[in-house]
Amino acid sequence: METLHTLLGPLSFGQGGWGDDLLKGAFLTLQLALCAMTAGLVLGLLLAGAKLSSSRLLRWPASGYTLFVRGVPEFLILLIVFFGSDRLLNWTATSLGLEAGYEVPKFLAAVIGLSLIFAAYACEIFRGAYLAVPTGQIEAGAAIGLTRRQVFLRIRFPQLWRFAIPGLGNLWMVVLKDTSLAAVIALNELLRIAKLGGETEIRPLLFFTAAGVIYLIMTSVSDIGRASLEARARRGVAEV
């Protein structure tokens, strides 16, 4: 028992222990992932709309954007957003004649950075899901006299989620894991707390392993949730 205490003591809860801090970090990680995912989905939907539109003016920038994001490391994008967002904000402020001195909080910078990344992936998922709706159904809709708008709202859009859910479930796992990159811009999420704890207590192996276990628990729970969501999405659809 005593050896166990010396072994795991630094991870205890309360005074002098890091257990509660690690959990707080994990909570911030979840918040970050949820915010980034939500913003990423909205942006991704807009991007998919632009990519599927008939206007080149919308299509080309959207394609260029997804190409860029999918070819450049997440880490690099996060650093560009982190160092660039303040500069952009203050430049805008001064050009509008306002006084400079605004800062983008690290959490917000991390959400912006991560959601800009995931938007590109979500865009591809939505686009694939949109195109996955069988053309027969679209033609059938047109045949019974539905307008293009009605076809979109009544036939395509409701089915979009069904086709997109496996991809989006995957994306959520990626988002959850990629929040760890925010540790490098000194946001106190799970991994950064583990780093601080490991350096202070001089037990890096213990702390990083603890962080790893917490990530594993979060991804495992997500995986179960994803499986049941996928099962729901398939409900009432005949297996091919």
Binding site: K177, L191, P204, F208, T209, Y215, D223
Partner: peptide, 22 residues
């Protein structure tokens, strides 16, 4: 399971800073 369920950055730090500190 473990390598797909945890972030790459955590894996790197466990092995470099964690095991390396031994």
């Amino acid at each position: 399971y473990v390598f797909r369920g945890t972030p790459l950055l955590v894996q790197l730090w466990i092995i470099y800073f964690g095991f390396g500190s031994l």
